[in-house]
Amino acid sequence: MTRRLLLVHAHPDDESITTGGTMAAYAAAGSEVTLVTCTLGEEGEIIPKGLGQLGSWAADQLGGYRSWELKVALRSLGVVEHRFLGGIGRWRDSGMAGTAAATHPRAFAGGSLGEQAAQLREILDERRPEVVITYNSSGGYGHPDHIRAHEVTMAAVREVPSVRRIFHIASGGGAVPVADGGATTEIDISAHLDAKIAALRAHATQVTVNPPVFALSNGVPQPIAEVERYMLVHGPADGAETDLFGGL
């Protein structure tokens, strides 16, 4: 029987940084892996100087460019099922709290939670995943869009009987570990590091890759780890685990 996994992320590149190896591993094993991306990441900083005019402060074309980067990244990970929440462009990157972007009429973090949860339920009903992954209540590092992605996911899954297990991201293969909680499940991605590295490279506006490390726009090197970690927050537990599906 085919196993079905669905992940909810806030912006293009989040999926590759925090869960890319996991997605590649389960896709390679024949599982149906679906990614839901909530915004186009329009407010992201831009690393390559030659692309600076794509930013929201100039041509405001970064979202479209990042959607192309995401398409390339998913091809590297072997993932074919992808949805933008509410359709491409429905929700906009909210930026950090207190910025002008947070007041945009399509800002994801300021949108209707009920509408967003209903949009995600439609995807969940279509894809019928047994396992769902998203951020914890702090969004990992406090970004408003990550927090809203958590809220939307937890609201939506309540009414979806196919979902047997829910995980929060506990670390991201080199990304800063989350603040609240450890890990129940560790996924060995060592056999899929090449796929993850290729996906990270696809997000060139946001990520610089120099294995065994990568860096975001702040230039701080972070290791590309061989394990991605998760916290089981709903569903049957089998103790220390190395499989998101456990005994399902």
Rank of each mutant, 00 (worst) to 15 (best):
R164G: 03
G21N: 11
P221A: 04
E15V: 01
S162F: 14
T19L: 08
F108D: 03
I189R: 00
I147S: 01
A58R: 05
Q116A: 09
P177W: 04
H168I: 00
Y135W: 13
T19D: 05
L62C: 02
N136E: 11
G21Y: 05
G50N: 09
L216M: 09
A191Q: 14
A10H: 09
F214G: 02
Q53L: 12
M96V: 13
L85E: 08
S217L: 00
C38K: 05
G41N: 04
Q116K: 00
A215V: 06
E122V: 03
G78Q: 08
L244I: 03
T22N: 06
A102S: 15
R127Q: 07
M154N: 10
G89D: 11
I46Q: 03
L6G: 02
T134F: 01
R128H: 07
N210P: 02
Q116D: 07
L232S: 00
T22M: 13
T18Y: 13
T34L: 04
D238T: 11
G64D: 15
L70C: 00
A149M: 06
A191N: 13
A170K: 08
S190K: 13
G55V: 06
T37F: 00
G87L: 14
E226P: 00
G235A: 11
A198Q: 14
D238R: 14
D145M: 05
D188Q: 12
A156M: 10
E69V: 05
A240W: 04
V36H: 00
H168V: 00
I166Q: 09
A29Q: 12
L193I: 14
A191L: 13
G95E: 05
V152H: 02
A175R: 05
P236Q: 15
V176W: 11
A29D: 14
D60F: 03
I88E: 15
S56I: 08
T22E: 02
A156C: 12
L35P: 01
I123A: 03
D14V: 07
V207S: 06
A202W: 03
Q222M: 15
A107S: 08
E32T: 00
L200H: 12
G87Y: 15
F84K: 03
L35Q: 04
A27C: 07
A195M: 13
A191K: 14
A215D: 02
S217A: 14
S16I: 07
R201V: 10
V152A: 06
A29M: 09
Q53R: 12
D145R: 02
S137F: 13
G78E: 04
R165W: 08
A170P: 15
V220N: 08
A195K: 15
V8R: 07
W57M: 09
I123K: 04
T205F: 09
E42W: 04
G30R: 13
P177E: 07
M23F: 00
E130R: 08
V36R: 02
A215L: 01
G142Y: 07
G52N: 12
H203W: 11
N136M: 05
H146W: 01
L216S: 07
A183F: 08
G50V: 04
P211R: 06
V132N: 00
I197A: 13
L54G: 07
E126A: 10
T19H: 07
H9Q: 12
T34A: 10
G114K: 12
I187M: 07
E159L: 15
E15R: 04
S190Y: 11
I123L: 04
A175S: 10
M231W: 01
G182Y: 09
K196M: 12
